[in-house]
């Protein structure tokens, strides 16, 4: 029978990752219920206390509420951006992989390559710089900076997912079942969407989690530079940037606590992404971490070594940590 994708088994790393993400979501939800991120509650910055578990910021606003708002904003921007990237990149990649070696493949991949001529974060910054940070008005619709940041980050990831999808599709196309189905007269479209796509999803999903980690980082970086969402709306990057001016006054909580929440998010998605990626057969090397390496002792030689080595050498699929 054709291989069915297995649900990833979570190792220790995976559980830690899940815990981090859950903690991140917890802060985001509980904090929002805690108070108003805009209201001025204390006359100045105050250390963490029972009333204000994260303390207050330089204008006297509750930091937990602001961190929570920031965590939520960062989260939805990143989910939207990765969703957009997958929605655009995956079909492109599958199409290119299906037409592997042909002109369409070449054209698609070359154009995707051009998008990667700038390092990813620089590219995203460039797009934001183009669009400006002020609200844009298209008739009755006002587009704030949040959706534009999501769009820019998403666009930066499209080449990435296109390649992952293409690589996975190429491998799938070589499988026996595809030739068999073709021989049976099943139309190509059905082969693609019914059978191939199902097997292409898992690597894409694994990469999506890793990409989430980068997206959270990138969104934080943009806000840090002041190119992200406008005040008084908080994002984690905003808070870190504002905190930069406060540490010298001795207000340690301002810089460390929102930053820790940010790290939780990135770390969680990183660990989850690795575990998800590690839980299935690596026909295409989609990451630097080799599932085989830690589990194997040097004496154990995988039988497929002669065939696997050429395929295991990673293609130009970029591994996640392109930014930072």
């Amino acid at each position: 029978m054709r291989p069915r994708p297995r649900l990833p088994r979570l190792g220790v790393a995976g559980w830690i990752g899940l815990a981090c993400v859950v903690l991140y979501l917890l802060v985001a939800t509980v904090g929002r219920l805690h108070g108003d991120p805009v209201a001025l509650v204390t006359p100045g910055p105050e250390a963490p206390s029972f009333a204000h578990p994260f303390g207050t910021d330089h204008l006297g606003r509750d930091l937990l509420a602001r961190t929570a708002e920031g965590a939520w904003t960062s989260l939805w921007i990143c989910v939207t951006s990765i969703g957009f990237a997958v929605a655009v990149g995956m079909p492109l990649g599958v199409l290119a992989g299906y037409r592997h070696g042909g002109r369409l493949d070449g054209v698609l991949m070359r154009s995707v390559e051009t998008l990667q001529a700038l390092p990813q974060f620089v590219f995203v910054m460039f797009l934001i710089g183009l669009m400006g940070t002020a609200d844009m008005h298209f008739g009755p619709v006002t587009v704030g900076n949040g959706p534009r940041v999501a769009f820019a980050i998403g666009l930066g990831f499209v080449p990435y997912f296109a390649r992952v999808a293409r690589g996975a599709t190429v491998v799938e196309m070589r499988e026996d079942y595809v030739t068999n189905l073709r021989g049976l007269g099943v139309p190509t479209r059905e082969i693609l969407f019914r059978e191939v796509l199902v097997n292409v999803w898992p690597p894409v999903l694994g990469q999506a989690l890793l990409a989430m980690a980068i997206a959270v980082f990138a969104e934080g970086g943009l806000s840090f530079l002041g190119l992200g969402v406008a005040p008084p709306q908080a994002t984690l990057g905003n808070l870190i940037a504002d905190a930069g001016g406060q540490i010298i006054g001795g207000d340690w909580w301002y810089a460390t606590l929102p930053g820790t929440v940010l790290v939780l998010g990135i770390l969680g998605f990183n660990l989850l992404g690795e575990t998800a990626g590690a839980g299935r057969p690596r026909a295409v090397g989609t990451g630097p971490v080799r599932r085989r390496a830690p589990e194997q002792t040097p004496e154990e030689i995988p039988e497929e070594t002669p065939r696997q080595i050429p395929a295991q050498i990673p293609t130009q699929i970029p591994t996640p940590k392109e930014t930072q």
Partner: peptide, 28 residues
């Protein structure tokens, strides 16, 4: 875009919210 005016605006926005005014900050 300087920090001072940004902080002023945020404080004022919080104050205006108290009387039911919804104010958006635009930085140029």
């Amino acid at each position: 875009t300087n920090q001072g005016i940004r902080d002023i605006a945020q404080v004022l926005v919080a104050g205006w919210k108290q009387v039911g005014l919804d104010v958006t900050i635009e930085q140029l």
